[in-house]
């Protein structure tokens, strides 16, 4: 079996395993998702109220556009969930990492395929929630076919970028276990610079410029804007190009840090 075919076989098998596993907890998944919906609904209600008070729009966003932004937000947020950096300490302490290192396969493949499988369950469970939100908030959403196609690719690009970023964060656990302060700082930056808290176009000019040079936007705001905004085809494809750039940079950085981390782990032991 050639290497690519073998890897494809592993991805497919692990995705199937993840789907089987996540279906075991479908009710818990639903409650988790419903809990998660609270965050965008609060943002949506606040911004819609402000838009109403300011004569119908804020920064060009009408309540209908806000609704579209935050409903698509719920899907992108779900696509964005990857292995938590807090989990690495558990992996090390519980010996899970030992098992991973004994396999003739990079553990990154395991995480990417596992969470990719999970996404199919998430999308399925998200659909009825999206219908309810649609009926409740009446979004203004008229994407072109190109926007839909780019969005379908971009949500997976976002998933891969965030996987790399959170893996890098988690790998710090190889050197120290008191990493929550670093994680919190990261999550705050991500919240502000990704478009999660508020559409980036409503942020000050300098924040928008800064966000263009950082990966966070391409893991969150860009896929949403690709579907709900009015981007030109050039902007759409440039965004995909930036996603590819950050995926490659992230993968290279993960590889470097992983090697150093494993060297540290195998020197110090557990």
């Amino acid at each position: 079996m050639n290497a690519f075919k073998a890897l494809a076989d592993f991805y497919l098998t692990n995705m199937k395993t993840a789907i089987a596993c996540e279906f075991q907890y479908r009710v818990a998944q639903y409650f988790y998702m419903i809990g998660m919906i609270a965050e965008p609904v609060i943002y949506l209600v606040v911004w819609s109220t402000i838009a109403g008070a300011q004569g119908g729009s804020v920064g060009g966003y009408t309540p209908g556009q806000f609704a579209a932004y935050y409903i698509v937000w719920t899907l992108v947020r779900n696509m964005n969930i990857v292995f938590t950096p807090y989990g690495w300490e558990w992996r090390i302490r519980q010996g899970q990492l030992t098992g991973m290192l004994m396999r003739p396969l990079h553990p990154l493949h395991y995480d990417i395929s596992w969470f990719a499988g999970w996404k199919f369950v998430v999308i399925l469970l998200w659909l009825p929630i999206a219908v309810v939100l649609y009926l409740a908030f009446q979004p203004t959403l008229n994407p072109s076919w190109l926007q839909i196609a780019v969005f379908a690719v971009a949500i997976w690009g976002a998933y891969l970028i965030r996987t790399m970023l959170l893996w890098l964060l988690g790998l710090i656990s190889f050197w120290t276990t008191r990493v929550s302060a670093i994680f919190e700082l990261y999550f705050t930056l991500e919240l502000l610079l990704s478009g999660r808290l508020v559409p980036l176009s409503l942020m000050p000019e300098w924040v928008q410029s800064l966000a263009n040079f950082l990966p966070f936007k391409y893991a969150f705001g860009y896929p949403i804007e690709a579907l709900v905004g009015q981007p030109t085809p050039v902007q759409l494809f440039a965004g995909l190009g930036m996603q590819l750039f950050w995926i490659v940079v992230g993968a290279l950085a993960v590889q470097l840090v992983w090697r150093a981390g494993v060297k540290q782990f195998t020197s110090v032991g557990n």
């Binding site: 395993t17 075991q24 907890y25 396999r103």
Partner: peptide, 15 residues
Amino acid sequence: DIPALDSFELNRAIY
């Protein structure tokens, strides 16, 4: 959370 048979299948793919 899943039967061992599924984990065995995963090992087949890994190895």
